[in-house]
Write a protein that binds this DNA or RNA. Structure first.
Ligand code: MN
Ligand code: MN
Ligand code: ZN
Ligand code: ZN
Lengths: 133, 133
DNA sequence: GGGTTACTTGAGAAGTGTTCTCGATCACGT
DNA sequence: ACGTGATCGAGAACACTTCTCAAGTAACCC
């Protein structure tokens, strides 16, 4: 049985307050900035739990860090992520789903899972980069 | 100018001898097993160089480890990977390429890159798993 | 070939993200 | 309230990767 603690609520709240993908450490810093004394290990545990329960999506940044996000739907979908500010657009593509399943089956693979993410610079960050260049 | 050392050749050779994706540490172990005294840092450096030159493909395992592979083509493609034995099938899918480009453009994202990998259990590993179950 | 020089190597230290340990704390059913 | 076991948090431990720097050596020049 899972207990309700202010720590778990704080993590969920911080996730909800962020619209992009964030790392455990970034979330911990954000919480500390608001005065919360929550421990880093607890943030990691809470995020892992949320991901397992399906209440949060997680992915690895190109640099290998685990990022989390409270998504609007718990249906399977993918993401278009700004590598500068973390802004995220949820995308779904049945064609890609079918393709992934088919390519695995055609090669005799079972228990197939896929990683499909698109990283780029969002419009705002693109404009900012152009201005400072 | 980049020098030719037996270390670099050894890494390239070990990569070529492997048909699946392997980690730097696994490659280092394999080399040591053959009696090579090559250093771990050197393996990391050689693999990074190969990846930059386009002579090796790299991706992150679901566990966050960087894996490398000498692919048969240096054209853009993706992979179907056995998460048990590392066996890899190279796949290309123009439809996915187009989709990735379009979804980024439609949302105002620039400099889009995509991560598309399929992980599963190859036929052999599937059979082995069934037999031991 | 011998000398010069800058690139490369490797052992270990350091860095980074994440998980583990374990005594203290606290949620929750009774 | 109480008891009990889940949860917390500080720091240690871990796994992977990169850095440091003294020693080694490939490549260029003569
Ligand atoms: Mn999908
Ligand atoms: Mn592609
Ligand atoms: Zn952005
Ligand atoms: Zn396999």
């Amino acid at each position: 049985m899972k207990r309700n603690t202010w720590q778990r609520e704080a993590v969920r709240g911080a996730l909800d307050a962020n619209d992009g993908f964030v790392s455990a450490q970034a979330l911990h810093s954000a919480l500390h900035a608001t005065g919360s004394p929550i421990g880093l290990a607890t943030v990691y545990r809470a995020l892992a739990d949320l991901a397992v329960k399906g209440d949060a999506d997680s992915l690895q940044s190109p640099e290998g860090e685990s990022l989390y996000r409270a998504c609007s739907t718990n249906l399977h979908h993918h993401h278009l992520i700004c590598r500068n500010c973390g802004l995220t657009v949820e995308i779904e593509a049945d064609a890609v789903e079918r393709w992934a399943k088919d390519v695995a089956a055609q090669n005799g693979f079972t228990q197939a899972a896929h990683v499909v993410d698109v990283f780029g610079l969002c419009a705002a960050c693109t404009a900012k980069a152009a201005a400072s260049a």
